[in-house]
């Protein structure tokens, strides 16, 4: 295109402004956690890490993390298992009901999450199921399984089925074909799917809030403490929670690298 129109400077400024708006609230949380007063009075008179010391020594901090981790682990396991199979049906095999399957699969993604949470709450209660972290796993999975299925499917679209036939032709057994050909092709998709599942579950509020019962995941606790009982402890725990999730992601990426080297 010709160089007419907005200057490169204007374009850069727009992008910087968008990024600033996206990150200002996150920076604000970090800033707020560095105070020691009950009331938010910025700029702080005293800048301190007291809130972090308190948070680390506070038993509930680790309780919240444990519950969120438990839920995320459950969601990852469930959605990768279902999503891998679903992706095979979505992208690998050509079958009669596939068009319908593809259309129905995305519906939970295009559904208001709090409404889904409330509908599940009502159904669980009607069925006599007491809400707990397990019901949260189910609720998250309704939303996350379709997403993971799509993430793995994207990888599978580029996959040439003739590779499997070639492996059979070269004398591989069904199991060997799966291990040597199919799984390596699926693996990058499965890994990204697992990452998505973990992050989406870890950060989810609208589904957890109605389905968690007495087991409080981190985002739900933060939500309830934002409205009442504010203290610098709250932003400190928010920061810690975000760091923990980043560490888990880095750990998974590192694990993947280590596994790749072992092969």
């Amino acid at each position: 295109m010709s160089r007419s129109g907005p200057l490169p400077f204007l374009r850069a400024a727009w992008i910087v402004a968008i990024l600033a708006c996206l990150y200002l609230p996150i920076v604000s949380v970090v800033l707020a956690s560095l105070a020691n007063s009950r009331y938010m009075r910025f700029p702080h008179r005293v800048w301190t890490l007291d809130a972090y010391r308190e948070a680390v020594g506070f038993f509930q901090t680790w309780d919240l993390h444990l519950i969120s981790l438990q839920i995320a682990a459950g969601v990852v396991a469930l959605s990768v298992a279902l999503g891998t199979l679903g992706a095979m049906a979505y992208a690998r095999y050509d079958w009669r009901g596939r068009g319908l399957f593809r259309r129905l699969l995305v519906l939970p993604v295009f559904f208001p999450q709090p409404v889904l949470g409330l509908a599940l709450l009502l159904s669980f209660t009607a069925a006599g199921v007491v809400p707990s972290w397990k019901t949260v796993v189910i609720a998250h999975a309704v939303w996350i399984v379709p997403i993971v299925t799509l993430v793995i499917s994207i990888r599978l679209f580029g996959y040439d089925v003739a590779q499997e036939e070639a492996a059979f032709d070269l004398g591989a057994t069904r199991l060997q074909v799966f291990r040597e050909v199919t799984l390596p092709a699926l693996w990058p998709g499965i890994f990204s799917g697992a990452l998505f599942a973990f992050l989406l579950s870890w950060s989810n509020l609208p589904l957890s809030i109605y389905t968690s019962g007495p087991d409080t995941p981190l985002p739900v606790w933060l939500f309830s403490r934002v409205a009442t009982n504010y203290a610098p402890l709250v932003p400190a725990i928010a920061v810690i929670g975000t760091i923990v999730s980043a560490l888990v992601v880095l750990g998974l990426v590192g694990l993947r690298g280590a596994l790749a080297r072992l092969r």
Binding site: I26, V29, L205
Partner: peptide
């Protein structure tokens, strides 16, 4: 991937 409760809080 940062919880919306954290971001809205911020």
């Amino acid at each position: 991937f940062i919880s919306e409760s954290v971001r809205l809080f911020g």
